[in-house]
Simulated scan of single mutants.
Amino acid sequence: MKKVLITGAAGFLGSHLCDRFINEGYFVIGMDNFITGDKKNIHHLEKHPNFDFIKHDVTEFVNIEGNLDYILHFASPASPIDYLKIPIQTLKVGSLGTHNLLGLAKAKKARILIASTSEVYGDPLVHPQTEDYYGNVNTIGPRGVYDEAKRFQESITMAYHRFHGIETRIVRIFNTYGPRMRLNDGRVIPAFMGQALRGEDLTIFGDGSQTRSFCFVDDQVEGIFRLLLSDYEAPVNIGNPNEITIKQFAEEIIKFTGTKQKIIYKALPQDDPLQRQPDISLAKKLLNWEPKIGRAVGMKITYEYFKSLSEEELFKSEHKDFKKHIHL
């Protein structure tokens, strides 16, 4: 039985990856420090014979006993609410955390897949975004703590590949959604769905002409799984190229939920990308992958998940005191 370490295992995407690898017959070691992850996302795996969990901050030295075949590094704040509250930890998990896990991969002779992001493209001047585009990122802006953490993560990963011969994979993840997202984490889909369920008006930042492309989590996990098992070491975009404006999407949510809310507008945050659409030609060619689940189906599944949450979860705000739990 092959063994895989998944960091950020209690997060939205990390927990779905744990499920997939267990279902594929792997022994999964999950690792998380619960800064943004949630224990309930992996509660169903606690007694599974092929799952083990280690509570640990990957910015500290990481050691795993015994053999290890694969490492998937998904430990990082991923929403603006999180990385703007804990900017230093965000930079540390992308730099120190990645360094520690690359060192573990070297010691164990394990293949490592790094979770990068479409945010490495910044506010793009090329549309749609291809893997050979270098990006347009403000290094000192508030979003720079996330964008540059991921860009450094890619750089050190390729350095380990070239210098040490480590088997590396890099996935650039575009907007992904589905069950287990945090309802109030500041990202577009949970924000709109939460407002709709609470009977609040839907908030658009800017005029709503900015675009996003939303990929359902099952499609994303399939792309990541195929990339890990491929023989390609450079970054690959995994996302859904079906682009939509934020205003159109808000109108779609109102129609979908049958609510009567209005759309209200607020100022656009600094460096918020105006366009986001992946070019997935490389993924199609290398991995024979493209998304299969349309937005109508994916949104219905996601909405049913959010509707199932308790009233306490529906109305609570994100107010974690991160500084009590981490070393800044």
Rank of each mutant, 00 (worst) to 15 (best):
L113S: 02
T7C: 04
T139Y: 08
E167W: 04
P278I: 07
K255G: 11
E252R: 15
N33P: 07
R143G: 05
A149D: 05
D321L: 08
H127T: 14
L72M: 15
A75V: 06
M31S: 09
A10F: 01
D19I: 03
P179N: 12
V4R: 02
V236P: 01
C215T: 06
Y232E: 06
Y134I: 12
V217K: 00
L287R: 00
I301N: 07
L45P: 12
A78C: 13
Y121P: 02
K255H: 08
P87D: 08
M299E: 08
S116W: 02
K324A: 13
L286A: 10
R162G: 13
S95N: 12
L309F: 07
R212V: 09
L314D: 08
G94T: 11
P179W: 03
I6M: 09
L287Q: 04
N50K: 14
G199A: 04
F322W: 13
H319T: 12
L13D: 00
A105M: 01
Q220T: 14
I140E: 15
E46Q: 11
K300Q: 14
E148M: 15
K324L: 10
L17F: 00
K300D: 14
D82E: 14
N138K: 11
M31W: 02
P278E: 05
I254L: 14
H327I: 04
L5R: 04
L309E: 13
V137G: 08
H48K: 11
V188F: 09
L309K: 14
Y134C: 11
V28T: 10
K85I: 02
Q270I: 13
G14A: 00
R182K: 12
D271F: 02
F306G: 09
D219A: 02
D57T: 06
D231W: 03
D38P: 06
V62E: 02
G25L: 03
Q248P: 05
E251F: 05
P190N: 02
G14N: 01
E290A: 05
I42P: 03
P128T: 09
M31A: 10
V62M: 06
F214E: 00
D57H: 01
E131H: 03
G294V: 07
H164C: 13
A296P: 09
T203I: 14
N33F: 04
G37P: 13
A9E: 01
Y305P: 01
L113P: 00
E233C: 08
L5M: 09
M299Y: 06
M1D: 12
V188P: 10
I29A: 09
D272T: 14
G208H: 03
E243H: 06
Y133R: 09
E252N: 13
D69Y: 05
P49F: 04
R169W: 06
I189M: 04
V297F: 10
P179V: 05
